[in-house]
């Protein structure tokens, strides 16, 4: 038996993102952000996107390009403090922003990827984060219902992929990627290196190939992937 080859041109993979698509983006700050795929989204220009990501990157990087191009209708995020444009667009009502506690975003995505409809938690009880969420009491403890999150498309950055879509992440670039790679109807992975089948040892696979639809090889990495030298 042989596992299918899912390698694909970036243009062709990203063409699946149409107007109104909900898109998950892996990454926490720079590590794990699929910058090249984001640039291709900007080039193709689908509108009214809902973006699910930990953060909005920084000015001139990643999500900021989507915002600058006016492609975003809504952000579902945990923190946008490093992107002044995101804050301004939120305050001006140009985009809708839904904030989640960081572990709640992770768990909502994980639940979506696990085929669950939601989960019950006490996180946020007694704060405005619980407002509007159904209350559920378990064994006398107050909780709220958090709903699962899924997306039409997830864009994932991997250090290595094989041709079947088995993925391996590097260091803190893992963050939300393995969760999002399970929680979308179509999963597109960009990889710094694509290796033949067997090139990633089975024990070293972080995301199993069946979750991944398309694998795109990156050429030389752009400066966005590099170390950010802050003043």
């Amino acid at each position: 038996m042989r596992l299918a080859n899912k390698t694909c041109a970036m243009e062709e993979a990203v063409a699946h993102i149409g107007d109104g698509t909900t898109v998950m983006l892996g990454g926490f700050g720079v590590p794990g952000t699929p910058f090249a795929l984001i640039h291709e989204v900007v080039r193709q220009g689908p509108k009214d996107l809902t973006i699910i990501k930990n953060d909005a990157n920084e000015k001139g990087m990643g999500v900021d390009h989507l915002l600058a191009a006016g492609l975003v209708r809504k952000l579902i995020v945990t923190h946008i403090g490093l992107n002044a444009r995101a804050i301004e667009m939120m305050n001006a009502g140009e985009i809708e922003v839904e904030f989640c506690a960081q572990g709640m975003l992770a768990e909502r995505v994980r639940a979506g990827g696990a085929g669950l409809m939601g989960f019950v938690t006490d996180i946020g009880v007694g704060t405005e984060l619980a407002d509007g969420k159904p209350r559920i009491e378990i064994d006398g403890h107050a909780g709220v219902l958090e709903t699962a999150l899924r997306a039409d498309v997830a864009l994932i950055h991997a250090a290595r992929a094989d041709t079947f879509g088995n993925l391996a992440y590097e260091a803190t670039a893992r963050n939300f990627s393995p969760l999002m790679a399970m929680a979308a109807d179509r999963v597109i992975a960009e990889a710094e290196e694509i290796v033949p089948l067997g090139g990633i040892a089975p024990n070293a696979v972080h995301t199993a190939g069946p979750f991944v639809d398309h694998v795109v090889e990156l050429g030389e990495l752009s400066g966005e992937y590099g170390v950010v030298r802050r003043a």
Partner: peptide, 26 residues
């Protein structure tokens, strides 16, 4: 470039460090 803390500082590991995803972290 792949190793930061939650504040974006470039950090290092020690002997015995472990990486995990955000769901495991929380």
């Amino acid at each position: 470039r792949n190793l930061i803390d939650a504040g974006g500082a470039y950090i290092s590991t020690v002997k015995g460090s472990a990486f995990f995803d955000s769901a495991v972290s929380f």
